[in-house]
């Protein structure tokens, strides 16, 4: 408003920076950065990109302030900063995946998937993750068998029956439970099952610990899906004289099923990658143990952890291949789960 009273001719339109001007700014910034890196002790690709990005933000801000005014300049700077933030977030993902692919390829062979580490020292070549694959498979399977019905029942309680303080408390603590550190879940099963009941290390103990981690995820995912089931379906069922429990089992759950399957798959992906609770409860073993209820067992993430702690290159190579396998399993689970959601999405 004050501008209008200033007397000078006022235009409401300010200049506008075209794309090629910004491009030119970019090129100049790159040249300046290259110059800086040639003259000063600065070095490294990462450093180059960061310095260039910072310089670009500054240069764009100055040019835009001159041509377009302060408000537009801030807007431009924020826009660029937001884009840079997103690109920055992609860097570790791309880096982890490509690095794991490169390092994991060394031992991605038949022997790796068909042999255990029995009698294989850190320096020895060969050996594999067969025992760990078995362990992971059994532990995750048992975890799923326990968590899914348990979690579904909790979700049914929250959505279909829950009222008052108890339901509020359960809802709240399901959310709090998602934040329990995995190592604490491991310690819990260690103190309750392994030490308390004197059961010793076993794959089943690991499953119990993983259940503590998987349960809240299953509950949350199923709860979201059950809420999306339209009330008209329930009412129609009630109107036909169907009792409530049958309505839930025959109408509500089947309607929500695709979404629940997605949630369960994501939960499985999450617990498959857990290391700490398995370390405390199954402890790890070099030999094949197909009995999840007795004796120490290994798992894929645990194998990665234990092999990575060896300084020997052969062990590290095994760790990378196991890590690559783990990434592939988790990514496939994630992708399939997302594709499922896209195909059968209940409209909100």
């Amino acid at each position: 408003m004050t501008v209008l009273t200033a007397g000078a001719p006022v235009t409401l339109r300010r200049g506008h920076l075209s794309a090629w001007v910004l491009g030119a700014v970019g090129v100049v910034v790159l040249l300046v950065t290259a110059g800086l890196f040639a003259v000063t002790p600065l070095e490294g690709t990462a450093g180059f990109v960061i310095v260039a990005a910072a310089l670009f933000l500054a240069a764009q801000g100055v040019v835009s302030t001159v041509v377009e005014g302060r408000r537009r300049a801030i807007d431009r700077t924020v826009t660029s900063a937001v884009v840079f933030a997103f690109l920055l977030a992609l860097v570790p993902l791309v880096s982890v995946l490509t690095y794991a692919l490169r390092q994991g390829a060394h031992r991605f062979d038949v022997e790796f998937f068909t042999h255990s580490l029995r009698n294989i020292g850190a320096r020895d070549a060969g050996g594999g993750a067969y025992h760990a694959l078995i362990g992971t498979l059994q532990q995750v399977l048992i975890t799923t068998v326990i968590s899914v019905p348990f979690g579904l029942l909790v979700a049914v309680y929250i959505v279909e029956y829950g009222r008052g303080r108890l339901a509020a408390a359960i809802r709240f603590f399901v959310d709090v439970m998602t934040g329990i550190p995995s190592i604490v879940a491991g310690l819990f099963v260690l103190s309750f099952w392994t030490l308390g009941l004197g059961q010793g290390f076993s794959g089943f103990a690991a499953s119990l610990a993983l259940t503590v981690l998987m349960l809240p995820v299953v509950v949350r995912a199923s709860e979201e899906m059950l809420k999306l089931v339209p009330d008209s379906l329930r009412e129609a069922s009630f109107a036909l004289g169907v009792p409530r429990w049958k309505t839930i089992l025959r109408i509500v759950l089947p309607t929500a099923l695709p979404g629940i399957v997605t949630g369960v798959m994501l939960a499985i992906a999450r617990v498959t990658g857990e290391t700490a609770p398995v370390l405390l409860t199954a402890f790890g073993a070099a030999s094949i143990n197909t009995d999840p209820f007795h004796g120490p067992q290994s798992s894929l993430p645990l194998l990665v952890f234990q092999q990575a702690q060896d300084a020997q290159q052969t062990a590290v190579n095994r760790a990378w291949t196991a890590a690559l396998t783990l990434i592939l399993v988790v990514m496939v689970l994630n992708l399939v789960a997302r594709l499922l959601t896209r195909r059968n999405r209940l409209e909100r």
């Binding site: 993902l93 690095y99 290391t275 990665v304 760790a319 990514m331």
Partner: peptide, 12 residues
């Protein structure tokens, strides 16, 4: 990014 297991981040 959240799906990558923590042990893989450790190794990397």
């Amino acid at each position: 990014l959240a799906a990558v297991p923590s042990v893989v981040y450790g190794l990397w």
